[in-house]
Amino acid sequence: MRSIVSSALAAVTVLVLAAGSSPAAAAPSPAGVAIDFSLRNLEGQQVSLSQHKGKVVLVNFWATWCIPCQVEMPTLQRLHTELGPKGLVVLGIATDDPRQEALIKPIVKAKGVTYPILRDPDTRVVSQFNPSKSLPFSALVGKDGKIASVYAGLKPGDAEAMHAEILALLAK
């Protein structure tokens, strides 16, 4: 019993240390500039983040096997349709490895997605933005190129929060 208590204490200590080291840096508004990337779209053309400099960019990582990602797609499409003319760029980055990539275009079509879809088959870019590669994951990049916030997972209220935040970034 003593060992359980001691190990629990040790675990709590490590948890506290780990937690203590993270929240300050894990604020919803990281100050870093988004590292630039260049990927091919479904037509084979290169698209880079920096070519959209001066716009608000929503970078969304997804995969064909990720169910919440597909649930999220209509929300992103609405953002693209409504706020695209006001300066928002939505970039969907499919992280499927090559085994699954034949499904990318049919799923995109079936979900009515018209924003650009890029391929990241080596998972090089998603590694930079989200090392755990958990999906879905979105990063909101402001006009200044800085990451304004990240959205890990999909939870109720995300759509509203994202919409409000994008409007604020567009107004800056």
Partner: peptide, 27 residues
């Protein structure tokens, strides 16, 4: 050939640090 030149990478200035902390305790 697809229209337009290849986009230049690296025109965004400044630096960034990304991190991921993952902690697990299992009994």
């Amino acid at each position: 050939v697809p229209a337009g030149p290849a986009p230049e990478v690296g025109s965004l200035q400044g630096g960034a640090t990304h991190g991921l902390e993952e902690f697990r305790f299992r009994h």
